[in-house]
Design a protein around this nucleic acid. Structure first.
Lengths: 101, 101
DNA sequence: TTTTCATTTGAATAATTGTTCATATGAGAT
DNA sequence: ATCTCATATGAACAATTATTCAAATGAAAA
């Protein structure tokens, strides 16, 4: 029962991990990520699919991009967003699994 | 490229999953959970360990308990909290792994 | 170049949320 | 019953955050 802090992950690491989970902890963002798990998509397509304004979707995509969870490429006039990482699928999968019980 | 919604998890399910991740998406709560991953502990011990007030810890434990992530038992005057589920370890583990790169 | 379409950005607003402080509850000890 | 000790609770406050609206940027078409 001695020093528990030594056995815990570093505080900074935990902070970053919390920041990561914060990304998944919002209805809009997790819907966006779920959609992108099926296939890459433009901002407008996402907005139509989820029934939200382009602006709202764009703001959230900005955060997700900042968190390196999605990446974007330009295709003519539109921006196509896709998952940055297979880790994203794994994490959402774990969450879904835990909830479905 | 047809109906993507049909391939996505149900909206309610995604909502619940977001709620789950919200629990991990806070510095204080993830620290509490990390500590409880090492060993079960009283509210006061957690407060001392993390350098926060008992009240703040108690409030967060209430949320974690509501989310079925921790459970409590009484031991004399104190309440001993522990992880409710091994799933919690798995999920935090995934998050830590993703961050450490 | 001007126009149009898709996206981004910034400011404002509304809503949620974490912490603090003071008080209440609850259990064991005196 | 009273007195501690440990925890829980509620209200107030501060801070963060998601959405909306309006305007700006950027790229392709006319």
């Amino acid at each position: 029962m001695q020093n528990i802090r030594d056995q815990m992950p570093d505080a900074c690491l935990l902070y970053d991990t919390a920041e990561l989970f914060k990304m998944f902890g919002d209805s809009t963002r997790i819907q966006i990520l779920s959609a992108l798990m099926i296939c890459e998509m433009s901002v407008g397509d996402l907005a139509d699919l989820l029934g939200m304004t382009q602006s709202a979707v764009s703001h959230q995509l900005r955060l997700l991009k900042g968190g390196k969870l999605v990446e974007a490429r330009r295709q003519g006039k539109q921006m196509i967003y896709s998952l940055a990482d297979d880790h994203v699928k794994t994490i959402i999968g774990q969450g879904l699994e835990h909830v479905q019980e």
